[in-house]
Design a protein around this nucleic acid. Structure first.
Lengths: 364, 364
DNA sequence: GATGGGAATGGTAACCTTATCATCGCTAAC
DNA sequence: GTTAGCGATGATAAGGTTACCATTCCCATC
């Protein structure tokens, strides 16, 4: 017995007014007399009427919806971005259609098109690595997109990035300052923008001191990564420091070093890019580059809504590169200490991008 | 120059056929001749036509959309659930409208109603603590809801929970087995279902051995929590073990103990509910109850789609209580060792809920 | 040759809302 | 007393799609 939903017509009938009057009452788009308003209000209450946003979207120009595509929600970095975007959207009265691409170009493409069909007013995405994203230029020719964490080509697309290269350079410089010159790099797939850009910064720092790059450990899986680290430790010229280029590789690294009972930082020093949960309570605490994760998502969302409102936004694309922080803790060889509170950032050095935009291998 | 979007009528005109033929071609709802299909296909390609899902939803009975409400995405537990739900929805061809309630009843209410207005076919939610949720019974009288992590009252609502009480009891029993009898409990707001239920299990275990409950530390903030722990340590009868009832309190606990240089497990033993990232590489590794987080989300989504498909689901409500695992690592006093790989679960004991449903303070 | 029936296709209405224009009643101004 | 103007309200159409029914055409059947 699937009864029909109550509509604005039902309300109008019960209140003894026209549909338009009800609509006006709901949207406040024009004045309704005190008396009529009362009648309509009562009718709405009695019928438990809820306006149909679908019909509203169809009629109007605005679905009040944005799409969000992230690779995963399992990674705290992505989850935090998604949270920030969701929060901004809520404040703006927009709903979020969220999906995960699983770092798979086909899924991403399919989901992006689906969002288009759902008439989203804009899209915030972390584009899948190694995809050319030609389709977005075609399909989203009239709908703004903001990418974050990774650049995205397109005439009216904005990107929010961080000082990957400068940050990596700074932390590796710091390791060099501690006397290290054979520093291993833990990375993932080379097609990942962040890894690649950070690798460049790592090379910058070494080159600046006249050293060659150390070994590049491609951490496809935890097992593979552990094996690579172990073989490095047993080589004739073992690295004296490891630089993990993101939170995942840091986890692999620590896992392996703890399991092998390698003393940090006595035998090998450790530093990473991307702060990880527990980095401050690890033993020793971990020196990292911290990204302003929440702000990245927040800024991306704000840029999108600026485009959506169509205000005074130039037709040129924006690329914002945010500074990062070097958080000096114990694993690099610095004197370790424990934070007194969550907001105590240890020794923190702000790293600004050298240049805007970064002179980095980019996809466009 | 905002050109009108191309519609099914444009396609029909260009292909020289009726709208219905195009619709049939798109949906495969009826046969279309080879020749016509070809014409329509070409027209769609030429015009870059994309069907309007909004219009489709308005006409049909099905928006192919579900709503998801979680308190935060910053907590890995919630993020993992959201990821699982998103994945299932994707497989089912559904889109997800996701929002965060920020553990705020008013936001939750508002967002739930908004989803209703957007004609979602179902809702998966982690209900805000301490809210009676009377409104969902009214508003969602014809739309299925599945709650997870926390129970939700309602005639056609399902819930997915875990063996909170039995799990907490098991891990506290284990601590007692190590000789502890003064065990402090780290909790959050008492209105949180999980905390409350786990506290009951903690009391069960102590009572079973004839011991009174230890101090309840209400960890409102990291600072507050640290202060409470410190004062406990300095009391005349300091606890010899700490039980952290969720991942957040565990983080606070470890942070404080490390900062205070308290030897684990020599001076105090530690165990928790909810596995945390890095628990296996912490120093020592942390004994916890692990919840099947991803499966919770997955199961919740599957239950929802069973309701949506309206198949052979009885009108009675389901309450599923999943088993948890006791992962014995070093912090409880057991002989520590390191996992060889991500899938190596150390010593793991499956804890089944004693009874179904749990005999716990529930909201209905 | 007439008829029945199935396959392919088209026309129309409906989904629910809001923009637009029209209407009505009233007051203010001449 | 007429009219302009304004405020409140209503009728209609449009937004893009699909369910439903009608139509057309052709072949098989008697």
């Amino acid at each position: 017995m699937e009864q029909r939903k109550t509509t604005i017509a039902d309300v109008a009938r019960l209140a003894g007014v026209g549909k338009m009057t009800v609509s006006r009452f709901l949207n406040g788009s024009a004045k309704v007399s005190e008396e009529t308003a009362e009648k309509v209000h009562r009718a709405i209450k009695n019928l438990h009427y809820q306006p149909n946003e679908i019909a509203r979207s169809l009629r109007g120009l605005n679905s009040k919806t944005i799409g969000v595509i992230v690779p995963y929600l399992l990674d705290p970095f992505f989850a935090t971005c998604a949270h920030a975007i969701s929060t901004v959207a809520k404040e703006q009265g927009y709903s979020v259609i969220l999906t995960t691409s699983d770092e798979n170009p086909e899924i991403e493409h399919k989901q992006a098109i689906l969002m288009l069909r759902r008439q989203v007013n804009g899209l915030v995405m972390i584009p899948v690595a190694g995809n050319d994203h030609l389709y977005v230029g075609e399909a989203f020719s009239h709908i703004p997109i903001v990418s974050l964490d990774r650049p995205l080509a397109g005439p009216h697309f904005d990107s929010v990035l961080v000082a990957n290269r400068a940050g990596a350079k700074a932390v590796v410089e710091h390791l060099i300052g501690h006397g290290h010159r054979n520093i291993a790099f833990l990375g993932l797939n080379r097609s990942l923008y962040a890894v690649n850009t950070r690798y460049a910064g790592y090379c910058d720092a070494l080159a600046q001191s006249g050293y060659p790059p150390g070994p590049y450990l491609d951490c496809i899986s935890q097992e593979k990564c552990a094996a690579l680290i172990r073989s490095q430790l047993q080589s004739s010229q073992p690295p004296t420091a490891f630089f993990a280029s993101n939170n995942l590789t840091m986890r692999y690294l620590l896992h392996t070093l703890y399991a092998e009972r390698v003393a940090i930082p006595r035998r090998v020093a450790v530093a990473g890019f991307d702060d990880i949960e527990m980095a401050d309570v690890a033993h020793p605490s971990i020196t990292v580059i911290r990204q302003p994760v929440y702000q990245i998502g927040e800024l991306a969302a704000n840029l999108l809504f600026k485009r959506i409102s169509g205000a005074d936004v130039a037709e040129t694309r924006n690329r914002v590169v945010l500074p990062v922080e070097l958080i000096l803790r114990g694993s690099c060889g610095c004197k370790a200490r424990f934070a007194k509170s969550a907001s105590d950032n240890f020794t923190s050095i702000v790293i600004n991008p050298e240049t805007l935009p970064e002179q980095m291998p980019m996809l466009d």
